[in-house]
Write a protein that binds this DNA or RNA. Structure first.
Length: 913
DNA sequence: GTAGGCACGTA
DNA sequence: CGTACGTGCCTACG
């Protein structure tokens, strides 16, 4: 057994060094100066490109330390030896120089030191810092467009050299240098000396390019050795070499980078600092940069206000054990008994692996307990006793653990035959309840944010990009150490987040709803839904040929070929070539959306709009079907992924594929639902959905008696509402009036305006306004409720659902009218949509528990916001239907009934009702 | 290269 | 100038 008390030095620093001038210059030429500039004439292309590149580097490389090196204007030590050094350079473009101080200012605001030294070039500063970093054990990355930097490349020092574009940085490690130039990095100087460098006014040997130079160096080993054998070189090239040897030797002296520049900084001084957000805002405002770059930047820097992150190894002491064969059982007995791991002190569990599509794989696993002990486990190296002990520990509900991404852990472990029984916290879920508007909950980000702890080494995707063999011989280093640190991070994060969740009144939501829902969702994903592949392929062919025919017809009408998928080309064709009337303006011209094309079809005799609409329909259906075919697994089923931490309102979302947006509104679209069929061994599919759940919630929340009565009456809700608004008997409400009232009711839940309503119904804004007034005259409680929601949210900063799920809306107090009104609509909708999400989540828990309790073999397969799709086992239809109806309608006690409608059939289509 | 815009499917 | 999502395609990057 290998045990290692961790010391700070083992945390690997990553030092990023940028050559300021060379990268800014590259940026300058990569982006057109005419297009990047402020209204006052300041060019900004170099600043923008540089910042954009830096953001990408910070995001992709996650350096812990950063510095930018700059050239100064005066002569350097190289001019002392060779006065013509860098002579004859073409004039610097006038738009460039003013951008250098701006870029430097930006670096300062981000917390990146700008370094330079009189008499030295940026390259020398970089060479010196690379040495300093390397000696301190850091991994060094150099972003430079100057090839001289290649001489610095080693196993732990990589040059990122720009290719075609600035963001296309080529990783020049020793192998890449050798592949490209045929020499090792230490010999690159020899090659450069022979070839010369025009930009530096350093002529090389005429007629000798990189190929010849590399050949010579390969043959003789080095320039020195080549010089010793200089008389052996034949041909014109050999003569030229002898004639220009002095130049070559001078070049070689001059291209040696100084590694001893006196900068007075150590590695610690280069730790990425905090970003002065107000300063960056002001600078970007002045430069008239759009918000996108700003937000990308803020996502990757340390914003002020937060503590500067501390490397994990300094922040936490982990007594790491790397368990080899036969050692894990003993470790668990010693450190992770029911006495060590308690509700007050849950263990942290970290899974290194991959998961998705209802399955997964464990590549590594670690456990950290409150005592500080941690173990890292290679699942491939466990003996029978280890396996049994681990399985017992993981499954034991009496040994509470916190985990990051519980569902992923269940899928990955489940694929290995392991269960996970004692999860009391999922740090991703907890963070979601604290900040539901965030869309990503990376462990690395959460640690930085809530623990002020910087996890060393990045996770690329779901797998740690670490040396798989690292570790054992030299103790718990590399991959195993990183795993243990992560388990400790999860352990510590769980405590901090539990307090945050508690503070927001979300404890029940987390432990009573979201957390118990995770194993239910894991089972949905694992089950998947059976797909009729042959039928999907048939549909694909049909939609594809219909789309092709539409393309041909469109080309025929216009008289030339164009891309029907390009809104831009469509605009050209419709509004300029054919001169059709213009539609609604959008950012990029005039819209060609379905509404507009429908309008155009009515406006003119031209066939084209109709053909385009048909083409849109058919291509949309084709891509939907294609996407589905691609995801049919070997078991003949489609296993979507339900995301529990994406939607700000509390809804689930579905990806890979999205099964929550399978067409249903049109006949042709609905055919796709025939492809979702009952699986082998089951009898039929059953769908159960809530009727008008959002309106029922609105009735409940507003306590408007008229709505409550309309729902309790049991008659057609919209017709009842119409009768009241129009002062007629229910059976005298026309279909059109009913649909107007229906649109009005639903619209309210979204914060609809009179204008929006008029658009939706195709009536004038005056008529729409009148309709709203009539509606509110009858149902004033709804209006009062909606107003109160916004007012309250403005006051406290958030809205709340029936289960206390919050949504924070800081924009409610914005000075910007558009943002404020947007936030107001969100505030109107969030309690309604979110409460519906709460209810169906509770229903899923109850249905799941009741199915288990009853011993039924039927299972839930999908959730589509207000609908559950269930696969019915033979002979269970009636019992399960009753069970589902009962559990769904009793999920929450509203002031109105929760109506559930149910249908069954062999496919999802046939189960409609 | 990629982020963002458009278009469109669902609740 | 109605909320919440995900996907595919195209295009411009302030």
């Amino acid at each position: 057994m290998v045990t290692n008390r961790e010391t700070p030095e083992t945390s690997k620093a990553r030092l990023l060094l940028l050559d300021g001038h060379s990268m800014a210059f590259r940026a300058f030429f990569a982006l057109p100066a005419e297009k990047f500039g402020t209204s006052t004439g300041q060019s900004t292309n170099a600043v923008y490109g540089f910042a954009s590149m830096l953001v990408k580097l910070l995001r992709d490389e996650e350096p812990t330390h950063v510095a930018v090196a700059w050239d100064l204007s005066g002569p350097t030590f190289r001019h002392e030896e060779y006065a013509e050094y860098k002579d004859g350079r073409s004039e610097t473009p006038p738009e460039f120089p003013s951008q250098v101080p701006l870029t430097q200012e930006l670096m300062r605001l981000i917390g990146v030191p700008n370094l330079s030294s009189p008499g030295f070039e940026a390259d020398d500063v970089i060479a010196t810092l690379a040495r300093v970093g390397g000696e301190a054990g850091a991994e060094v990355l150099i972003a430079s467009g100057d090839r001289d930097a290649f001489q610095l490349v080693t196993e732990s020092c990589t040059v990122l050299y720009p290719g075609k574009s600035l963001s296309d940085l080529r990783r020049m490690d020793p192998a890449a240098v050798e592949e490209k130039y045929g020499v090792t990095p230490p010999r690159y100087r020899d090659l450069a000396a022979l070839v010369g460098e025009k930009a530096d006014n350093l002529p090389g040997v005429p007629g000798v390019g990189p190929k010849t130079a590399a050949k010579w160096i390969a043959k003789y080993g080095s320039l020195e050795s080549l010089v010793e054998h200089i008389d052996e070189i034949g041909g014109k090239a050999g003569q030229n070499l002898r004639d220009h040897l002095d130049d070559v030797l001078r070049n070689q002296r001059l291209n040696l980078l100084a590694t001893d520049v006196d900068l007075g900084v150590g590695l610690d001084d280069l730790l990425l600092g905090r970003t002065d957000r107000a300063g960056v805002d002001a600078l970007f405002d002045n430069l008239e940069f759009a918000s996108s770059l700003r937000e990308r930047l803020y996502a990757v820097v340390n914003l002020d206000g937060a503590e500067a992150p501390v490397p994990a190894a300094e922040a936490v002491e982990v007594d790491v054990t790397v368990a080899g064969t036969g050692e894990l059982a003993a470790w668990l007995a010693e450190h992770a008994s029911a006495d060590d791991v308690t509700a007050a002190a849950p263990a942290g569990l970290f899974l290194d692996g991959v998961w998705g599509a209802g399955t997964g794989r464990v590549d590594g696993l670690s456990v950290a307990v409150a005592s500080g002990a941690a173990v890292a486990v290679d699942p491939a190296r466990l003996d029978a006793a280890d396996t049994e002990a681990l399985a017992g520990f993981l499954a034991d509900p009496e040994r509470p653990v916190a985990v990051h991404e519980y569902k992923g852990a269940l899928l990955a472990l489940g694929a290995q035959g392991w269960d996970l029984g004692g999860v009391v916290s999922d740090t991703a879920l907890a963070a979601y309840l604290v900040q539901p508007g965030q869309r990503r909950f990376d462990l690395v980000d959460l640690c930085r944010k809530y623990l002020g702890r910087e996890l060393e080494e990045e996770s690329s995707g779901d797998q740690l990009a670490l040396d798989l063999d690292g570790g054992e011989a030299e103790g718990a280093s590399g991959r195993w150490h990183a795993l243990a640190v992560r388990a400790a991070a999860v352990r510590d994060l769980a405590g901090v987040l539990a307090a945050e969740v508690d503070k927001r009144g979300g404890a029940h939501l987390l432990s009573g709803v979201e957390l118990p829902l995770v194993p239910v969702l894991a089972r949905l994903e694992r089950a998947g839904i059976a797909a009729d592949r042959a039928y999907l392929e048939e549909l694909q062919g049909e939609f594809a040929s219909a789309a092709r025919a539409a393309v041909e017809r469109a080309h025929e009408i216009v008289g030339r070929e164009f891309n029907l998928g390009s809104p831009k080309q469509l605009q050209q064709v419709l509004f300029e070539d054919l001169g059709l009337p213009r539609t609604k303006k959008i950012k990029t011209g005039y819209t060609t959306d379905a509404d507009a094309l429908t309008w155009l079809a009515a406006q003119s005799d031209n066939e084209l709009p109709g053909v385009l609409l048909h083409h849109r329909d058919q291509t949309k259906l084709r891509t939907t079907v294609e996407g589905l075919i691609k995801t049919v697994a070997d078991d003949g089923r489609i296993h979507t992924t339900f995301n529990q931490t994406v939607a700000a309102t509390g809804r689930l979302s579905s990806t890979d594929p999205n099964l929550q947006n399978i067409p249903v509104r049109t006949d042709v679209g609905r055919r796709i639902r025939r492809a979702f069929v009952v699986g082998e061994g089951y009898q039929e599919l059953l769908t159960a959905d809530y009727s008008q759940i959002e309106l029922r919630i609105m009735a409940h929340l507003s306590q408007e008696q008229a709505l409550i009565d309309a729902f309790n009456s049991g008659y057609d809700f919209h017709a009842q509402m119409g009768a009241q608004v129009f002062g007629r008997a229910v059976d005298e409400v026309t279909g059109e009036d009913r649909s107007r009232i229906k649109a009005m009711s639903y619209g309210l839940a979204y914060g609809l305006s009179a204008y929006g309503l008029s658009q939706q119904l195709g009536i004038s804004p005056e008529e729409a306004k009148k309709l709203m007034e009539d509606y509110f005259a009858e149902f004033g409680g709804v209006r009062d409720y909606l107003n109160a929601v916004v007012e309250e949210a403005r006051k406290v900063g958030y809205t709340e659902t029936i289960l206390g799920r919050r949504r924070y809306l800081p924009d409610l107090t914005s000075d910007n009218r558009q943002r404020r009104e947007m936030a107001e609509r969100m505030a109107l909708n969030a309690p309604i949509q979110g409460s519906a999400a709460d209810i169906i989540k509770v229903a899923m828990l109850q249905v799941d528990a009741a199915l288990t309790e009853s011993g039924a073999a039927s299972r839930v397969l999908l959730q589509v916001h207000d609908e559950l799709v269930v696969e019915i086992a033979p002979g269970e239809r009636e019992a399960v239907e009753n069970l589902v109806r009962h559990e769904m309608s009793s999920a929450y006690d509203l002031r109105v009934p929760l109506a559930v409608s149910v249908g069954g059939g062999r496919s999802w289509h046939d189960a409609a009702h």
